[in-house]
């Protein structure tokens, strides 16, 4: 799997965009013109428990935004039909952070997303506790759902995190 073809994280280059002529410019296009270069990113990879209530409290959205999609991945009580008590997550931290930012770069290019927040817990995570929390904010639900789904799917292909189930 060669990621070099996907390129390095794109440099933050400010581009002067011409305002489209006429009426009816979609809200997402106007949003992209103003905000696309500044998608906010928040990434935490930590052994600390994920505090969903605090993450929701810390959310800030502007009047341009109409969609907040968030997802929590929770440890199930079974892996391959065997009961488990927890999962030990291992990470190659430096590479994981880099690969997450490559995915954020792709989201920034593809969708008018205002912000992405992602928290991945590592170490020992017990059954029914969240190991992953992802939030995407955008003008409309379509791009928010698509970007969130993309991020989770691609994370499972490229971000070097592994799990070791702890059997009961």
């Amino acid at each position: 799997m060669n990621r070099t073809e996907r390129g390095q994280p794109c440099p933050r280059i400010l581009i002067s965009l011409r305002k489209p002529r006429g009426q009816g410019c979609p809200r997402s296009v106007r949003f992209m013109q103003r905000s696309k270069q500044f998608m906010k990113r928040h990434l935490v990879i930590s052994t600390d428990p994920i505090d969903e209530a605090a993450l929701v409290r810390d959310r800030s959205i502007s009047a341009d935004l109409g969609a907040v999609v968030y997802f929590a991945g929770v440890v199930r009580g079974a892996e391959e039909s065997r009961a488990i008590s927890a999962i030990d997550y291992e990470v190659f931290q430096r590479m994981a952070e880099h690969q997450f930012h490559l995915l954020f770069d792709q989201i920034e290019k593809r969708w008018p997303v205002a912000s992405v927040r992602l928290v991945h817990r590592i170490g020992n995570v017990k059954v029914s506790e969240p190991s992953l929390w992802v939030e995407v904010t955008a003008p409309h639900r379509g791009e928010a759902f698509a970007a969130c789904q993309f991020l989770i799917d691609e994370m499972k292909r490229f971000v070097p995190i592994w799990k070791k189930p702890q059997l009961v």
Binding site: Y89, M95, A96, H120, L132, K156, F158, V159, I161, W162
Partner: peptide
């Protein structure tokens, strides 16, 4: 670095 397929989430 060498490692098996990743399994985050």
């Amino acid at each position: 670095s060498l490692f098996p397929p990743v399994q985050g989430g």
